[in-house]
């Protein structure tokens, strides 16, 4: 093996030494041990690789990313986690009994669960100490809508008149379950925030969604369908104040 051939192989030797036992490197490493020129090159190469790898690890991930990942993984659809066994068994039952209502019922349950997951994901995001991290910070509602339009994210179709008078805090466009959605935050006179999530209502098909206020984990939550969008209003403000605006 020439030194050039050995260098070609040793270029792929990882700086952390994880390849020490890989037989592919054996001959090249032996050659480096006996040839001073190759040894010097290899030493310099490893030093360079180690420095580059170390430099790159200095770049830190955003502090909220880990909690956001965990929240996102919580929202996975349980229907995709079925193993083949139960699915086959269910199929057998369906075929044998000739009942088509079973899968229909399951689909309904799945959609209901999906809404629950959507709601939970949004509340988890809002409850995280460092959330919501907004893409755009502005007090101007029109600017939030322009930004969301630019991002091709769903926007609030028609805002209740009273809400139009409130300043915004900002907005964010992001994805949940492969669906794009948006979050626009308003500041109420009390100083509390009112968050409005908007997603295409087809995400949940024709599932019935209650449009009354409910309390969840300390949040007041209300869903509303409007012009093809599903709006989710969320706030910790007193209910009386929220109702003035929604």
């Amino acid at each position: 093996m020439t030194n050039e051939a050995a260098k070609f192989i040793l270029d792929t030797y990882r700086p952390n030494g994880a390849d020490a036992q890989d037989p592919t490197f054996r001959a090249a490493l032996d050659q480096a041990a006996s040839d001073p020129d190759l040894a010097a090159w290899f030493k310099e190469q490893r030093s360079f690789d180690s420095l580059v790898a170390a430099k790159l690890t200095e770049i830190e991930a955003p502090p909220n990313l880990y909690s956001a990942i965990l929240a996102g993984m919580e929202t996975r659809s349980p229907i995709r986690r079925f193993t083949i066994g139960p699915i086959l068994a269910l199929a057998a039952v369906v075929v044998l009994s000739g009942i088509i209502l079973v899968p229909m019922y399951m689909e309904h349950q799945s959609r209901t669960a999906l809404i629950s997951q959507y709601q939970k994901a949004n509340l988890t995001m809002l409850s995280s100490p460092s959330w919501p991290q907004l893409d755009l910070v502005t007090t101007n509602f029109s600017q939030t809508q322009a930004y969301l339009a630019h991002m091709k994210a769903p926007r609030i179709p028609r805002l209740p008149g009273a809400l139009l008078d409130l300043p915004t805090v900002g907005c964010k466009a992001f994805y949940w379950n492969h669906q794009q959605l948006s979050l626009t935050c308003f500041r109420l006179p009390s100083g509390d925030l009112l968050h409005v999530f908007v997603i295409d209502e087809n995400t949940f098909h024709s599932t019935n969604i209650e449009d009354t206020f409910r309390d969840m984990d300390g949040w007041h939550v209300k869903f509303e369908r409007r012009d093809g969008m599903l709006l989710m209003f969320v706030s910790r403000a007193p209910m009386a104040e929220i109702k003035e605006y929604i």
Binding site: G72, M73, E74, R76
Partner: peptide, 21 residues
């Protein structure tokens, strides 16, 4: 882009959660 990198990382783990089985 830091924002896109964060979203892409989240999306990857979301897919992992869906397909971990």
């Amino acid at each position: 882009n830091e924002v896109e990198a964060g979203d892409l990382t989240q999306q990857t783990f979301f897919i992992l959660a869906q397909r971990s089985h």
